[in-house]
Simulated assay, not measured.
Amino acid sequence: MALRLITFDLDNTLWPVDEVIRRAERATSDWIAERHPDAAAALTAERIRAVRDRLVREHPDYLNNLTRLRRDAMAETFLEAGFADREARHIAADAFQIFHEARNRVTFFPGALEVLETLADSYALGALSNGNSDLKRVGIDDLFVFHHSAESVGRRKPEPDMFHAALRSAGVPAEQALHVGDHPVEDVDAARRHGFQAVWANLIDLDWPADLDRPDHHIHHLRELTDLLPLLDN
Rank of each mutant, 00 (worst) to 15 (best):
F163H: 06
H59E: 13
V185A: 13
D18M: 10
R52P: 04
G171M: 09
Q97R: 13
N130Y: 02
M74A: 10
V180N: 10
I6N: 05
R89C: 00
N104M: 05
T226D: 11
D30P: 02
F109A: 04
F108C: 03
D182S: 13
D53R: 13
V199W: 01
T44V: 09
L143C: 04
E101I: 04
P37Q: 10
L212E: 00
R70D: 04
V188R: 07
E58I: 01
I98F: 03
V106Y: 08
D182T: 10
I98P: 06
A150W: 11
L125F: 01
T118L: 08
W15V: 07
L125A: 04
N65E: 06
G126P: 04
A93M: 09
N130I: 02
L225H: 11
G195L: 04
D182M: 12
V172S: 01
V185H: 13
D207G: 00
F108S: 03
F99A: 12
R103I: 00
H164V: 06
T77W: 01
R103D: 08
A33E: 15
L79Q: 07
D189F: 06
G82V: 09
D53V: 00
R86D: 14
F109V: 06
R86H: 12
R26W: 00
R155D: 12
A201W: 08
E80A: 15
V188P: 06
K136F: 05
R23W: 02
V180C: 08
P158S: 12
V115W: 05
F108E: 04
P37D: 10
A81S: 14
F99M: 10
A95M: 10
L69C: 12
R192D: 03
V17R: 00
R103H: 15
L125H: 03
N234S: 09
S152L: 14
R47Q: 11
H36E: 13
N202S: 08
Y123Q: 06
A166I: 11
A165M: 03
L128C: 03
D161C: 07
K136T: 15
L119M: 11
V106I: 15
W15D: 05
R214N: 01
F196R: 09
V138M: 09
A27W: 00
A45R: 13
G126Y: 03
R192L: 15
P60K: 13
A124N: 02
L128D: 02
R103W: 03
H183I: 10
G111C: 07
R89E: 10
G126K: 05
D30A: 08
T77M: 02
L128H: 03
R57Q: 11
G82P: 09
A120V: 05
E186Y: 12
A27T: 09
P160C: 10
P230T: 10
A41H: 13
R47K: 13
F196M: 08
G131L: 06
A93T: 14
A33Y: 05
